[in-house]
Nucleic acid binder design. Structure first.
Lengths: 221, 221
DNA sequence: TTATTTATTTAGGTAAGGCTAAACTTTTTT
DNA sequence: AAAAAAGTTTAGCCTTACCTAAATAAATAA
């Protein structure tokens, strides 16, 4: 059965796979805020449903069927995030929590209607790509701010943080998709980065800075 | 705990109470599409939670706490119905099913935002009253079309049908809130009613006709 | 007023999805 | 290569909300 829990696990498996390359029981359990045995139990169930391949003691991978569901749920989530921001005036730090609940309950008609209303968008308010209905994922910029060279002027493409407090802080500094900034300096030994945004200068810890993706403002060629 | 099932039962108890005056296990079970023992079980649970008073073998009534939850859920439902119709262009026969799922999952912020966007409306697309946040219910017109006198010209205030096919049919005849029509005749022995809407004349079975509420187009005084 | 029908509740069971404690693998350290 | 640590799974339980079958209570009919 395609329960809410099943959808949530598949979504997390997909996302963890993308971030870490492999999906272990423990990491999944942490993401789901659930005990490890609970995760094991669900993985067994998902395997029976042919939604994942589970190699006991090694990890899981999604089957095509599982991946399809994961992408549908992620599409719902990100479309909702954008809709809440655009149509209802939600601030970007609040959209995640609301979308998290609604993503499981909207119909295909609802999905289609908000997608059309938003002009079939390809990114959500954080710059995360919105999977298309056919499972295609729009190309995304994967350059991290922390990998740019000091002195470079860049445009923010994506802020991968989920936490409301972090987003709120970054937003207050003007760091959001489409913002322009200059990477002034990177302190050594995994130290903070210094940014210039307009006339203001800010120092960001690495944990935050690593969540920021960019493209060069003036691409070299 | 305030689970989805709890909310649904409380909502049904409230509505059945309003329609029939008393709420028996069997009627409730039918509404919820559940076996009678299941309903009994839930009533016991709701009684433990102090949300209803359950007199075994006689029926239930809501406590103030139970009534409060019921009204919140109904407010969500009807606000959503109107929002879906107004903001997303849903037809009135589709709003019920979608609202039925979403009503349990929207936050108070979502509720407030759509209420404000809609101008704090007092009725949904079917003419059902939307309870206010404080639990107040807007005054509603309780005159039934079938109780009007033949020959009278009336304005539809409410169409209480939930079924999509019925709503679709009534809509196709032009019968919806704010529509004007004339009750041409009522056939005897619980026969159908004849209506004139614009230039067209229609014959409606009693089951349908009883769902229509009206006010007199030219109130006598 | 007793018998029958109807409504309701009790008894016992199922499936999801969670939990802790204990057992077992795999990996890492010494 | 053996011992310790870390990660994973199994075993056994709990809660929610449903079910069917059987028992009981109330209402109706004979």
């Amino acid at each position: 059965m395609r329960t809410e829990a099943v959808e949530d696990y598949l979504k997390s498996i997909y996302l963890v796979q993308g971030e870490l390359g492999e999906v272990t029981t423990q990491v999944l359990a942490e993401r789901m805020e659930v005990s490890a045995p609970s995760a094991t139990g669900m993985l067994k169930k998902l395997a029976e449903l042919k939604l994942v391949k589970h190699e006991p003691y090694y990890g899981v991978t999604l089957t095509p069927a599982g991946r399809k569901i994961a992408l549908e749920v992620i599409r719902h989530h990100r479309l909702l995030e954008l809709y809440l921001a655009e149509a209802l005036g939600y601030s970007w730090d609040k959209v995640h929590a609301e979308a998290e609940k609604l993503e499981h309950h909207i119909s295909e008609e609802f999905e289609d209607k908000i997608a059309a209303l938003l002009g079939n968008p390809v990114t959500d308010p954080h710059g995360d790509p919105i999977p298309a209905k056919d499972g295609t994922i729009p190309p995304q910029n994967t350059v991290r701010l922390v990998d740019a060279a000091a002195g470079e002027m860049v445009t923010v493409t994506r802020v991968a943080a989920q936490d409301a407090a972090q987003l709120n802080y970054l937003g207050s500094l003007g760091i959001r998709p489409a913002a322009s900034l200059t990477l002034v300096a990177k302190a050594p030994f995994d130290g903070p980065v210094e940014l210039r945004i307009g006339n203001a200068s800010h120092h960001l810890g690495l944990n935050l800075a690593r969540q920021i993706f960019i493209r060069l403002a003036k691409p070299r060629r």
